[in-house]
Every structure is written in C-alpha cells, then in structure tokens.
Design a protein around this nucleic acid. Sequence first.
DNA 1: CAACTATACCTCGCATACCGAGGTATGAAA
DNA 2: TTTCATACCTCGGTATGCGAGGTATAGTTG
Lengths: 111, 111
Amino acid sequence: MSKRDPTLMSGVPELVLLRLLAQREMYGYDIARALKLLSHEALSLGEGVLYPALHALEARGLLRSRSRQVEGRMRIYYQATPKGRRRLERLAANWRRMSEGVERILGAHHD
Amino acid sequence: MSKRDPTLMSGVPELVLLRLLAQREMYGYDIARALKLLSHEALSLGEGVLYPALHALEARGLLRSRSRQVEGRMRIYYQATPKGRRRLERLAANWRRMSEGVERILGAHHD
DNA sequence: CAACTATACCTCGCATACCGAGGTATGAAA
DNA sequence: TTTCATACCTCGGTATGCGAGGTATAGTTG
C-alpha cells in the first residue's frame, strides 16, 4: 500500500539519507562514516539499516544509483532524484515541526 | 528480553508522556488535549497509542495510577514514579543528543 | 605466505512501536 | 431521543529499525 507518512516517530534514517544525498553523490560505507562525523557520533546507521534503506528509497524513485569500480573495489553511488528532493523538503518540515513540539513540552513547566 | 534502548528513532510518545506526568497527575483524555495544546498541534497521540503506552509504562514501574470518580465519570490518573523521572532524564538527554545530530545534518552544507 | 584489518557490499528474522478502526459507557445538551 | 463530549479500552496490521551473520577484495604486518 501507498506508504503512509512517517507519523510521529521519526523516519530519521530516511530524512538524513535524503539530506546527504541531495548534496552530493555518496556510497554506503561513505555515508555511514559521514553520518557519524557530522552528527558527532549522535547518529549512526548500522548496515542493517543503511543498505535496506538505500534500496527502498531507490525502489521508490527517491534515489538513483550507479556502480563504479574504484581501486578494485565496487562501489554503488547514490544521489537524490528531484522527487527525492521534494520528499526531503516535506520530511524536513515535518521533522522541525514535531521536534519543536517536543521541545515545547520538554521545556515548559506545566503547572 | 529486557527492553533495549530506543535506538535512533524517537520513542517520542514515551518521552512526552513521562515529561507531562512528571509535572503533575493527569488522566488519559486530559493528556491528549494537553499534548495538542502545548505542542501547537504538532504532536497528537491517538488513543491507540496513548492508552497502550500508559499501560506499558505503568507495568514497567515508570508510572503509577489511581482511579477516581469525578462527576459520575471514571478517570484514571497517572503520575511518574521516581524511577519514571530517572528514565525521563535519560530519554530527554538522548533525544536532545539525537535531535542536535539531525539538526547538524540538516543545517550543514556538505561540500 | 598467513593473518589480520579496513573497505565494501548484502540478507534474514526478530522485536516493537505506532496507528487506525472499532467498541463500551456516561452525562449533558438540543 | 439523538447527539455530543467525555472517558476508557483492544485488536490487528504494518513498517521500521536493528543485530547478527555472510561474502569478497586490497593492503599491511609478522
């Protein structure tokens, strides 16, 4: 069925993947490293999340990939499609909205 | 097995429930309303999330409840236990950490 | 040359979280 | 008497995240 919106809970992996791959072409291993680095270790996608997520996003037309041989090793480079970018905008807006909501609740003292 | 930590994705419902109920005693319907209000509609826990979550948290000793009859209607009031408050601290710290991580990735231009 | 480490990909199956839809019952208002 | 707001509840589906495990190559080190 047609993929309902990520509701409350995050879909953070989808979000950050699209964000990275909207910026530039990257391959799996690369993404994992970048994610740890950029988020100061706060985020880390294990391979059991990463690869299935990449495949799913590609199948949905949000990413496209090309394989390249680099120094004997095979790499699959992904980047966001236009559709993926549009999706990213939606997800990012959503995420900010909900994260601000959480922040308000964490911050307030509700007497 | 013993309940692994909420990993990447949020466990936002658990977090916000504990936060509200660390502050004051509330009952289900009340919580739903407060949540919408405080978060400016950004968060809304449907009853299919809310009640099971409350039961689960109570079963884990993070909340305790008492029933009261108010104007003919039965209400079950919940509040956070000390253990629940400690859990809240952990979850809140976790959430900030990961939300900052996401923010960094959303914000940066990764050239 | 054997081991080991880093790179690079992959899948399977478990657990659990979240959600919508549906169900019950009361009191007040129309 | 019907409807609305209050107030609770459960069931079943789905997807999602995750760990563990598996393959293979290139380079390093003893």
